[in-house]
Structure formats: structure tokens, C-alpha cells
Amino acid sequence: MSDTKSSPRILVFSTDTISDPGIDQAGQRKIHYSPSVYVISLPCSSGIKPRWIMHAFEQGFDGVFIAADGIECSYNHKCAEYTNNIIVETQQMMKDKNINPKRIRMAALCSVCAEPFVNHMENFSRILVELEN
């Protein structure tokens, strides 16, 4: 049986210039994380639509992780605030559908954050497993 079945499926939203290179670096340095982590990269984390997140849950993802730009965002200095608003809004939608709001998480990741990314994935997986039990 493959791990993809047993470990939680996580959808990560990353950003083209900041967090996605950080995730790439984990690969470059051959630091292992769960193969059931899938990444979609966008220009800016403040552009993630709640309906996409909901779609991911409907399709069977166990968790959604937003690797936000934080202060390095070159578009908007309030990026973190707006991204957070999206999470709050989505969590409301999740409650309505009986999805535990803990299934969504956000953290700022920068372009050299290979290890922090892997740690986040490990922790999040653990949380998601706990939610199942």
C-alpha cells in the first residue's frame, strides 16, 4: 500500500517568487516530505479564492496550507492581512459544511525556507491525522 493513501493529502498554495522557490529548495536538497503534498503556485497569496479551498476539500484533500509571502510580498504591504481574511472567510464556509477549521493553515515562507516548509508539512500532517482519530 502506498503512502499516498495513508498520509493526509495536503494542498499547498505557494507564491511564484517567494515561497515556491523555498519549496523547490527542499527538493533540491533532497529533504523528504510526504508525497501526498501537492502545490499550486500563484502570484500572491492574497489572491486565493475560498471556493478553490472548498473545492479541494470536496475533492478529497484533507488539508490546505497557505505558504504566504508575509513582508516580502512585492505587491501589497497588507498581503498577510488580506490572506488572513481569506482564511477567516473560508473557515466560516468550512464550519457550514462541517469541516474542521483546523484543516486550513497559513504560515509565511520565504525563498530559502526549505526546512521550515518540511517542518510545516510534518506538523500539519500530524494535526490532520489527529483530526481523523
Partner: peptide, 11 residues
């Protein structure tokens, strides 16, 4: 590569 074969080279 960076997001599949390398980080999952163990599996």
C-alpha cells in the same frame, strides 16, 4: 523534479 522526484526519492 524539485517538487516530486527529488523530495520523494525515498519513495
Amino acid at each position: 523534479r524539485e517538487q516530486c522526484s527529488w523530495p520523494h526519492s525515498d519513495k
